[in-house]
Design a protein around this nucleic acid. Structure first.
Lengths: 220, 220, 220, 220
DNA sequence: GATGAATGAGCCTTCATTCAT
DNA sequence: TATGAATGAAGGCTCATTCAT
């Protein structure tokens, strides 16, 4: 039995995914996966190194590709002429989100793993990796455009980070809630507006100086 | 050895907290806690029932009290005359948040546990319990005030839930980031404005109908 | 709390019985019994010494009394004039069994314990104590009456023991099967005839020397 | 260390048997068995699944084979011509018992386990499985031969069951008493006669209608 | 006499990982 | 390469019993 059995690799990945989703990374049992896939634990070790390696195989390529896609989108916007940015922002933004959403919907399973079953792996805070990219480019953008509010120091940096985290976290709710693609589109649209408004309020407050006081506040 | 040995109770709780924070609930070892506290595992079982009971002892009272505090705040606002609400909202909201923040800072340890070490316990989604309260009162408020946008159906309900989750989640970042109290105050103030703006944009868009298109968007 | 609380003693015995019947002696939990009875484990220890002491309290008096009753019955028959024995045997036997049965039905609970929940206690072979009495008197009787077959040696002694065990064991099936008193009476009557015939066949075969060979045999 | 270590399997079974016999199933310690056999507890689990699986390995094959042997014997008798049955019964019966006894003596250890150490396993009432077979065929036989007494209803069925239980239970005393094979033979012979007589007395009383009253009764 | 917290050894079981075959 | 038995530490938990109060 020296040769790689046909399809074992795929079967293992399939079963692993099922097991991870069902029990979470920590509680998943390698032996169970091996048994279910009709192979041996040893075999899994030769192919994937260890338990986390198996998880990685499922999650990492997808996460990396998303990061690349996302970086490319940001980069392309960043390369625009300074004076185009402000005006083309919205369309770029919406278009970018569309692509990201497409990618997510093409790799639902992997994102489910990342979101719900990654506790105990190095992916348990995978969101931070996306947020980090977002934050980096946001800073660049703000400097390019000129943002007075930014000089207030550290807190603002932290705040951007947290706000972005909230934004991305909310975005992935489309996965957790099993929204269909249409629903997701509408939902993400709202989300974009929501966070855009929040962001502007904090960092470009001059645009709203009028009658702020009569805004309603739903959150005590 | 009848009657509680002096100080064992406290020592166990202390060590448990340390262990839980260090390894998370699932990976924390009862034996280790017992050893560190200078007791037997059996003793922990007499006092706390089981592993989760020990965690509960640390987290539950604090969470419950926060929920009560939070509900009281919401309730008090809800009881106001209809026509006062809109105008006194902001002050109520800020005042409420202040109290909540006070409470959190008085029970930092418990909230650290809830945030970072509760995976595997019934508290792992503790945030939902707060969100649920928030959402309930938000709906009431929106009905009282009259909100046209609400009739768009299910998505809106889901959206409110997600937005509130983002809000609360972000709020607890003060704990995760170990902000000092002053920093937190400033931070929370921004957060409130941020989400207020987002919320209004989605649910009371008529107030912003002017020049939306020249808003900047930091998020791709 | 120095004085013996009213009724605690009884309540403990009640709960112990329930627990022992439900789980058997070994698996019964003293703490469970104490909790159920509204007292403390310590209290059970002061009253009953240990877990088996508690069981003993329930089973021993009844078993002892049965043994006394049984011995008395045997003794009374043994004291008869030699030449009366053979003729009055049957009535004595039936009358004795009646009394025994009465006693058993008056102490069902205790016998249920002895039969089904005594594994792990010194009562787990309680039947032997009754058999031992039976065997002793049977030997005396056989010697008095004169029984040629007895000289065959050890095996016979062992055989009597085993046969008697079978007899008593079968007798207690009235308890295990929850027969009502009437059923039991009829059943025991059959049982007596069954074993009497068996016994005579082995030890007084001369009474059956006729056509034994055309007896049917249900047991392969 | 792949592939079974030489002789571990056997050593574990040996030690398990010793431990089970010494302490009974429930009180036997897997750790102790593993230690004694020079393996790890984990190893026992890979091989036998769990504690009861280990016991099962020792007892089940033997019990199953006995049941098969016993069924075959009964079946062969059952297939005889109706009018042969009554006459050939005795020889069949004796011959069958001989085979059963042989089998028992060839697997003493397993039967010791079943008899004395199976409390807590699914074998604790293993006798019933044999009795059930016996009773089934007995009923068939009685119907074939014609038995007037059977119409008395339920009690009779119960009685047959109990009598058969007594018979089998007594049979296994050869194991408990460590009789040598010769002793056992003589003993079983007596036992057969004893129960045959009992059985006939109850179910074919017409054959004994003469002078029953002068039978002696050894049992009070 | 009553309490019940503490004891601490012991239970069965599960696991990721290794490695001889 | 694939296998899967073996490892051995660790897991949570339960128990009868003790004994300071």
């Amino acid at each position: 039995m020296a040769k790689q059995k046909e399809g074992v690799y795929e079967r293992v990945l399939e079963c692993a995914e099922k097991e991870f989703l069902k029990k979470g990374f920590k509680d998943a049992s390698l032996r169970e996966i091996a048994k279910e896939a009709g192979t041996s634990t040893g075999s899994i070790y030769t192919r994937f190194g260890d338990k986390e390696g198996l998880f990685r195989e499922l999650a990492e390529p997808v996460l990396e590709e998303l990061k690349e896609l996302f970086t490319a989108i940001q980069e392309r916007f960043d390369q625009l002429e300074e004076d185009c940015k402000e005006s083309s922002m919205r369309s770029y933004s919406e278009n970018g989100m569309e692509k990201v959403l497409d990618y997510i919907y093409d790799h639902m399973d992997a994102f489910k793993l990342l979101l719900d079953a990654s506790y105990g792996t190095r992916f348990q805070n995978f969101l931070d990796e996306l947020v980090e990219i977002e934050v980096r480019y946001t800073f660049r953008y703000m400097k390019a455009i000129g943002c007075r509010t930014l000089e207030e120091g550290k807190t603002s940096g932290e705040f951007i980070h947290i706000a972005a985290t909230g934004y991305f976290s909310a975005m992935f709710e489309v996965v957790r809630h099993n929204m269909d693609r249409d629903q997701a589109e509408r939902y993400i649209d709202m989300l974009q507006k929501y966070h855009q408004a929040g962001f502007d309020t904090i960092f470009y407050p001059e645009k709203y100086e009028h009658g702020k006081d009569d805004l309603t506040d739903p959150i005590s």
